[in-house]
């Protein structure tokens, strides 16, 4: 199962290496990872998507990450009400005669054109990963020349609708 983990860390050199090294040592598979500064100076936040087999594994992952000295906080936010965003840049073969047609696909996804050549157009799409997957599938028949995705970054929503299951240590 896929889990969304956010890790708040002290922004020191090597901290990304520490976290990914730990995941490698403990045999976790990272699907995506994003890192960036937060509102607090000297503090960064990482968002991971990891693929794990069961609850026990994810509990172990959270505990091992929490043990790192440079890690301030670890949250498994998968079961919470969250906002998740990813950005993709997609270079599509779009000769002038097809451009209007392609744009009609892009519009509902609220994508934007950020670069244009004679026969290719680069689109930017922002949304949750499923939305981006869907867009890619629709645009693929036209010919994707190049594709890059940032990986997911996520936030817990202010108002929580569903309660989150607690880790076994608290039960």
């Amino acid at each position: 199962m896929k889990r969304v983990i956010t890790v708040t860390v002290i922004n020191q050199s090597g901290v990304l290496n520490r976290v990914t090294g730990l995941l490698m040592k403990r045999q976790f598979n990272i699907e995506s990872i994003t890192v960036g500064h937060t509102e607090q100076q000297g503090v960064s936040k990482m968002t991971f998507i990891v693929n794990v087999e069961d609850e026990a594994k994810i509990e172990q992952l959270v505990k091992q990450l929490s043990k790192q000295i440079d890690v301030i906080k670890v949250n498994d936010i998968t079961d919470k009400s969250i906002v998740m965003r990813e950005l993709a840049l997609i270079k599509v073969v779009a000769p002038p005669n097809l451009r209007a047609e392609i744009n009609s696909i892009v519009d509902p996804f609220r994508g934007s054109i950020i670069d244009m050549g004679k026969n290719v157009v680069t689109y930017q799409i922002v949304g949750n990963p499923e939305k981006i997957d869907a867009f890619i599938e629709l645009i693929r028949p036209y010919g994707i020349k190049e594709l890059t995705r940032t990986g997911v970054t996520a936030f817990v929503r202010d108002a929580q609708l569903k309660p989150s299951p607690q880790l076994s240590i608290l039960q």
Partner: peptide
């Protein structure tokens, strides 16, 4: 003293950190 050791190998009824 290390919470990560609890439940790592053996399922635990009562964890005490």
């Amino acid at each position: 003293i290390d919470p990560a050791e609890i439940g790592k190998n053996v399922p635990t009824e009562i964890p005490i950190v």
